[in-house]
């Protein structure tokens, strides 16, 4: 029954193509400046891992890996990245003295240790799962194990999932201390404070463009800072209205020239 550890040429080719990619993607996790890129690298690694699972005669786990991990879990990550946004902590500059050097040394030590140990192991032959997968079927075999020998672990993991779901809801829940203000309340507050009675000026609206990041122009041609969100101002994502004003001026000038002509 025992066959050598060797695997076929097709799988070998697959491994040598995908393995370096997965390592590079993993390193991308280490070096990416933006968390979105890190998340995308992670998805690549997971997809490749799923492929490797399938190649390793574990089709069910491979599919689950792709669907659940790359699909669900990483989407969750992306959601959180979206909520948190860019953060100063994305920076790769190390703040703890000696942390980077020590990490590199320890990691290299770990790699060396694991490699050496794995290299020293006397491997028997590989049995392979082809027989099992064809006789009982991969999914059926797994089901026998999960609902048979490992049923208690299965039940406990179900409990764990439920607990985790409740815990995450508790953690994410935020109790409002007061009802959210509606338009009426906003108006009342404006009048009470006596400021911006007519509301804040709307952002710039131009003949061919309407954007919240572009400030409106006051009658004298200067910019109204009140017309753009403070968040955008803080992120220096306020666009300049100059080009729209210039374009308008240009059009008006051409019209004037045309009428004179």
């Amino acid at each position: 029954m025992t066959t050598p550890l060797e695997i076929g040429a097709g799988e070998t080719a697959l491994f040598w193509i995908l393995a370096p990619i997965s390592v590079i993607a993993a390193l991308g996790l280490l070096f990416a400046r933006k968390s979105v890129h890190a998340a995308l690298s992670m998805i690549v690694v997971m997809l490749i891992a799923g492929v490797f699972y399938i190649a390793n005669e574990a089709p069910f786990v491979g599919i689950i890996q792709i669907v659940v991990y790359s699909g669900a879990v990483m989407m969750l990550f992306l959601f959180v990245v979206m909520l948190v946004g860019r953060d100063a902590s994305d920076s790769l500059i190390e703040t703890i003295r000696g942390q980077r050097l020590a990490t590199v040394l320890v990691t290299l030590g770990l790699v060396a240790l694991l490699t050496v140990v794995v290299g020293q192991v006397t491997w028997g032959g590989a049995v392979g799962l082809a027989a099992t997968n064809t006789e009982t079927g991969n999914v059926t075999g797994l089901a026998y194990l999960i609902f048979g020998r490992y049923v208690w672990i299965f039940e406990v993991s179900a409990l764990l999932l439920i607990t985790a779901a409740v815990a995450s809801m508790v953690l994410a829940h935020r109790t409002r201390l007061a009802p959210p203000p509606n338009q009426r309340a906003w108006a009342a507050r404006r009048f009470r404070e006596g400021k911006h009675l007519a509301g804040l000026p709307a952002p710039g609206v131009y003949a061919r463009h309407n954007a919240v990041d572009t400030p409106a122009l006051l009658p004298d041609g200067s910019i109204s800072e009140l017309s753009v969100s403070r968040v955008l101002a803080a992120r220096s994502q306020v666009a300049s209205p100059e080009r729209f004003a210039d374009a308008q001026d240009e059009i008006e000038r051409e019209i004037e020239e045309g009428s004179e002509r």
Partner: peptide, 24 residues
């Protein structure tokens, strides 16, 4: 005890590596 979780994690990993190394 500088309060940085990463430092603690580094200590942990160092311990793991040293322990495994010792076993090996």
């Amino acid at each position: 005890q500088n309060g940085f979780a990463r430092s603690y994690a580094l200590t942990m990993l160092t311990g793991v590596v040293l322990f495994l190394g010792a076993v090996w």
